[in-house]
Simulated scan of single mutants.
Amino acid sequence: MNTYFFATVACGLEAVLAEEIEALGIKARGIKCERGKVIFHATGDPSQLIKLRCADNIYRILAEFQIGPHKSDLTQLAASIDKLHWKRLAFQYSESSSGICASASRRGEHAYSRFDMIKSIEKTLEKHGFKHAPKDADALFIRADIDGQACRISIKLTNAEFRFRGNDRIFLKGGIRPTVAAALVRISKPCKNDVFYDPFCGSGTISNERAAFPARRIMASDMEERAVWTAEKNGRGKVIVFHADATKMPSKSASVDIIVCNPPWNKQIAVGDVQKLYIRFLSEAKRILKPSGRIVLLTDCHEEIARGAEKNGLQLIDMYSLSLHGLHPKVYELTIT
């Protein structure tokens, strides 16, 4: 079987997801990165795609074609949709035999909006016996993306439980979603002998993603009691969770292999003096790291992390630039010089 897919990912982490797809063993080929997407052919078992941890959603591509910029050109979109075998697709990919939920995006100069695109999709599928269903229904999710004159039609194969790891996780404000946490873990190059530590654990999202890989020990801490309780509940016994200030860590000197974290950005979680926090945290991190140890972190406080690294004699490498919720954080790696 040779099927065409794309997976969505946080903008800036496309290369990390592409690497994960290659490592998954689904015989993927023709991997291509676009903004927020990785497109590929899967010649192996496509059910293996649900093992992807860096992807927010997975889509099967049904059709690709050229489309004009005028509103009258939406007849091309309707005609391409009309040719597809929707009853069979609904049977394969949804719990509903008649419900559809359409979404659309466009980039470039067009005389029509994405709402016009959605209306065209829904009107065409009405002829096939489908009707609009709410987003939380067991409907067939259809997506149309137009970039310039290139149009792609796809169906979504995953739901919110895929990217949020079920429906029973607790998430606190200021955290990152599991798929971004999974990318940070992958960037850290997990090793089965690692002593791993997240000293700003919040809900425990990063440490939970690390628990998907073997490790000698996985630790997580936070100075907020609610965060410690939440991380412990989410960790389900796979993570050692404790109360600690990231500027006064209880770990022994030279005892940790890798620190992966998402320190406060002074946005959703106010911390006052971010510069002081980063300098003191990195000082402690340097103390507890083994000589070959590393820090991988995500922050949009670029000047503060650079100053903190300089103050503590740490080498700072700018690895990935992201776009998240209107902000532009970066993934940094820090090592002892």
Rank of each mutant, 00 (worst) to 15 (best):
Q76T: 12
A183D: 01
I206A: 04
N208L: 13
S253H: 00
P134V: 11
D56S: 14
E225A: 08
V274F: 06
R106Q: 15
M219E: 02
I61R: 09
A215R: 01
E64H: 01
G148Y: 12
N159A: 14
V241W: 06
G235A: 03
P199M: 00
S105L: 05
A111K: 11
A270Y: 09
F141W: 10
D45S: 14
A150M: 10
R287C: 00
W265K: 11
F242A: 03
R60P: 12
T158F: 10
A254M: 04
K119D: 15
Y197D: 00
M219I: 07
E304N: 09
H70Q: 12
R210K: 15
N208P: 00
L77I: 02
A160M: 12
M319F: 05
K189C: 01
R177V: 13
R186T: 07
K290P: 02
S103A: 13
K290D: 02
K37R: 15
G235K: 02
M219F: 01
F281N: 04
V260N: 00
C301R: 09
K192G: 03
F40A: 08
K173L: 11
E109C: 05
L324D: 04
I142P: 04
E64K: 12
C54E: 11
Q275G: 10
K119Y: 13
R143D: 15
F65R: 10
Y59E: 09
I187C: 03
R210F: 11
A7I: 06
S98Y: 14
K311C: 10
G202R: 07
V180T: 14
K51N: 14
E14V: 10
R114L: 11
A139F: 06
R226K: 14
R280P: 00
A90V: 02
D138V: 05
I39T: 13
R106Y: 07
G308W: 01
S154T: 09
H325V: 00
L140F: 13
V296N: 11
F171Q: 14
I258H: 00
S120V: 05
R165I: 09
A10T: 14
R177F: 10
F213H: 15
P264L: 07
G272F: 05
S47R: 15
M1S: 15
S221R: 01
G68P: 02
L17K: 07
K27L: 11
T179V: 13
A18N: 07
E109W: 06
L17C: 08
F164Y: 15
P264E: 09
K252W: 00
I218T: 07
F171M: 13
L157Y: 10
C33F: 05
M249K: 02
P264T: 03
L125D: 02
K71R: 12
E303Q: 13
L89F: 12
E224V: 10
H325A: 15
G272V: 04
V331T: 11
K233L: 15
Y93K: 07
A183H: 04
R236A: 13
A183Q: 03
F281Q: 03
A309I: 03
E14P: 07
F242N: 00
L322A: 04
G272K: 03
G148D: 13
I67E: 06
A15G: 05
E126T: 15
N193S: 13
H70V: 07
R152Y: 05
C54G: 08
A111R: 13
A306F: 10
M219G: 00
P69V: 03
S97P: 06
S221Y: 02
D136A: 12
